[in-house]
Amino acid sequence: MEPQNTHYTRTPHTEKLKWINHMVKLMDNQFRVPGTNFRFGLDPILGLLPVAGDLASFGVSAMLVMTMARHGASGKLVALMLVNIALDTLIGSIPILGNVFDFFFKANERNVRLLTRHYQEGKYQGSGKGVFLGVLIGILVLFVFLIWVLWQLAEWIYSYLVSIF
């Protein structure tokens, strides 16, 4: 059984977004575990690099959401997408548990499914330029929050290690 197809229905406004499918495949489904149908991408692999990997994955996901916002995603849809990438980044940054979580959550794939459903329901809103600034601000806020959480986590781990030794 192949993984669920996340390609857009071919319409004039979605043709511009073809590269999103390529990025989502790269981040969430590029590789297959031999002998299984389980697929994973670069996101969980990047998550193995403390802090830098999580920030890189967040950057790619944020870029995808900004592109989807520019191409007609509604404000409500973008908010749901931001929640997905926030969960992916925050939980994914927890050592060990986050690495396992990254293999299964696949925020980018979830966001593409949300956008596809949005288009299929006829909720496409044109250029989305009005939403774009809000998305940019939302991503910056999430980024600052992510840095703060990672800092707090690092301090906690450091103090825990110091107390053991």
Rank of each mutant, 00 (worst) to 15 (best):
M1L: 13
M1S: 15
H7C: 11
H7F: 09
R10G: 11
H13R: 06
H13G: 09
T14H: 02
T14D: 06
L17C: 07
H22Q: 08
M23K: 08
M23G: 10
M23Y: 10
V24M: 04
K25S: 10
K25T: 04
M27G: 02
M27C: 06
D28T: 03
D28C: 12
N29D: 07
F31Q: 00
R32M: 09
R32Q: 12
G35L: 14
G35H: 06
T36E: 03
T36N: 02
T36S: 12
N37A: 13
F38E: 05
R39V: 08
R39Q: 05
R39P: 02
F40E: 07
L42E: 10
I45F: 09
P50I: 09
V51Y: 13
G53Y: 07
D54T: 15
L55Q: 13
L55S: 03
A56K: 07
A56R: 06
S57M: 01
S57C: 02
S57P: 01
S57V: 01
S57R: 01
F58N: 13
V60P: 02
S61R: 14
S61H: 14
A62K: 00
L64V: 06
L64G: 03
V65A: 03
V65Q: 01
M66G: 02
M68H: 09
M68D: 02
R70K: 14
H71W: 00
A73E: 03
A73Y: 03
A73M: 11
G75V: 06
L77F: 07
A79H: 05
A79W: 01
M81S: 15
A86W: 02
L87Q: 09
L87D: 08
D88N: 02
T89F: 07
L90I: 04
L90H: 08
I91T: 01
I94P: 00
I94S: 03
I96L: 05
G98T: 05
G98K: 04
N99H: 08
F101G: 04
F103Y: 12
F104M: 04
F104V: 15
F104E: 05
F105D: 02
F105H: 04
R110Q: 04
V112T: 12
V112A: 00
R113A: 12
L115H: 08
T116G: 14
T116M: 12
H118F: 09
Y119D: 12
Y119I: 13
Q120F: 00
G122M: 04
G122L: 05
G122T: 10
G122V: 07
G122K: 12
G122N: 10
K123D: 14
Q125T: 14
Q125E: 15
S127Y: 05
S127C: 10
G128L: 09
G130T: 06
G130W: 02
F132M: 00
L133P: 01
G134E: 01
G134V: 03
G134S: 11
V135N: 13
L136W: 00
I137R: 02
I139Q: 06
L140R: 01
V141F: 00
F145E: 06
I147N: 06
L150F: 04
L150R: 04
Q152M: 12
L153S: 09
L153V: 08
L153R: 15
A154N: 15
W156T: 10
Y160K: 13
Y160P: 10
Y160L: 15
Y160F: 15
I164E: 13
